[in-house]
């Protein structure tokens, strides 16, 4: 199992390196460290959201409301910054984390206590949160000149050769790696998605694990909301529209099973980088940015086909294979 996962991630890294090398032959300087650092910085937010999405998917759920959560929280943070420029940045970040986690806990509560299927809950909250962003702002924008310089500059300050935004992503990757592989919560997340029946017998509260996965996902959306608003220096209702599907796509490409229980931090990281490299390469090699959507569609489909083949090797499906063989026989 570990061997399989390892080879899979190696393969994905290989593909990404090949892609970068290929693009470098078409566009000079594409593979230079400075440009690669730019791509990483550009992909940072997707990486963080994909890791949060992965935690939720591991528990056999899905969070379609992350982007809407990001839009609402980002709007709230930007408006607070515009209204109270004296408030320290730390307070704003704590506020973003708090609002995000609260919105996430609403999802978690509905899934845990009322046992409504996650896809229905987050489909509903997706429209509600984005609608609330409109109600909050009245449809108006918060522009760069209304934000304080500190608010705008911190994520782009360069430390040891990388912007703070990139460093935050790196810290999140390390933190998530620790959380998922070295803590009871992480192991519970894998267990409640991998085999819910066994998880219950092992004393794991599946509902509670899902609840905390949603809270984590919400808090991450909150953190990303500040980073997003600061990076693009604008907040409006439609920011990050459709980004929830990008985060799911990054997970799927990274080999995280949509059925829960399978996936690694490295996979989500590589899946995000894969999408990030393509997104940054298209304009450089002269393909219309309008082609990006179709390309990511094809990539997702191919990744699912590939995942299905990798998962078919597992022992768990032996019974079903035999059953279907008996049926056809």
């Amino acid at each position: 199992m570990t061997k399989l996962l390892k080879s899979r991630e190696l393969l994905l890294s290989g593909i990404i390196i090949l892609m970068i090398a290929g693009f470098a032959t078409r566009a000079e300087g594409f593979a230079e460290p400075g440009n690669l650092a730019n791509i990483f910085n550009d992909t940072s937010i997707l990486i963080m959201l994909a890791l949060a999405q992965m935690t939720v998917i591991l528990t056999k759920s899905i969070d379609l409301s992350v982007a809407a959560n990001l839009a609402f929280t980002g709007m709230a943070v930007a408006m607070t910054n515009a209204a109270f420029p004296d408030l320290p940045l730390v307070a704003l970040i704590v506020m973003a984390l708090g609002i995000g986690a609260f919105l996430g806990s609403i999802n978690g509560f509905l899934v845990w206590v009322l046992q409504i299927p996650p896809i229905v809950v987050t489909l509903g909250t997706l429209t509600i949160y984005r609608g609330m962003a409109f109600v909050l702002s009245g449809g108006s924008w918060v522009n760069a000149h209304q934000m304080t310089p500190t608010f705008l500059n911190v994520p782009r300050t360069v430390l040891l050769g990388l912007p703070v935004l990139s460093w935050v992503a790196i810290l999140v990757v390390i933190g998530m790696g620790f959380l998922l592989t070295r803590t009871p919560f992480g192991r519970s997340a894998y267990a409640s998605g991998g085999n819910p029946v066994a998880a219950v017998y092992a004393g794991i509260d599946i509902g509670r694990t899902r609840f905390f996965a949603f809270v984590l996902s919400g808090a991450m959306a909150g953190l990303c909301s500040y980073l997003w608003v600061s990076r693009y220096a604008v907040a409006y209702v439609d920011i990050a529209n459709g980004f929830e599907l990008d985060s799911v796509a990054a997970c799927v490409i990274g080999g995280i099973s949509i059925a829960g229980g399978i996936g690694s931090v490295a996979g989500a990281l590589l899946g995000s980088l894969f999408l990030g490299v393509i997104k940054n390469a298209l304009p450089v090699i002269g393909i219309s940015p309008f082609a990006q959507m179709a390309i990511s569609g094809i990539v997702i489909i191919l990744a699912v086909v590939f995942n299905a083949r990798a998962e078919a090797k597992k022992g768990r499906i032996i019974l079903r294979d035999r059953a279907s063989a008996e049926v056809t026989a």
């Binding site: 899905i62 896809i119 599907l245 799911v248 796509a249 799927v252 949509i258 309008f290 082609a291 990006q292 959507m293 179709a294 390309i295 990511s296 569609g297 094809i298 990539v299 997702i300 489909i301 699912v304």
Partner: peptide, 13 residues
């Protein structure tokens, strides 16, 4: 669910 997220991007793309 994943297949049609993919074809959704593909068709509109």
């Amino acid at each position: 669910i994943v297949v049609t997220i993919g074809t959704m991007s593909l068709f509109r793309g």
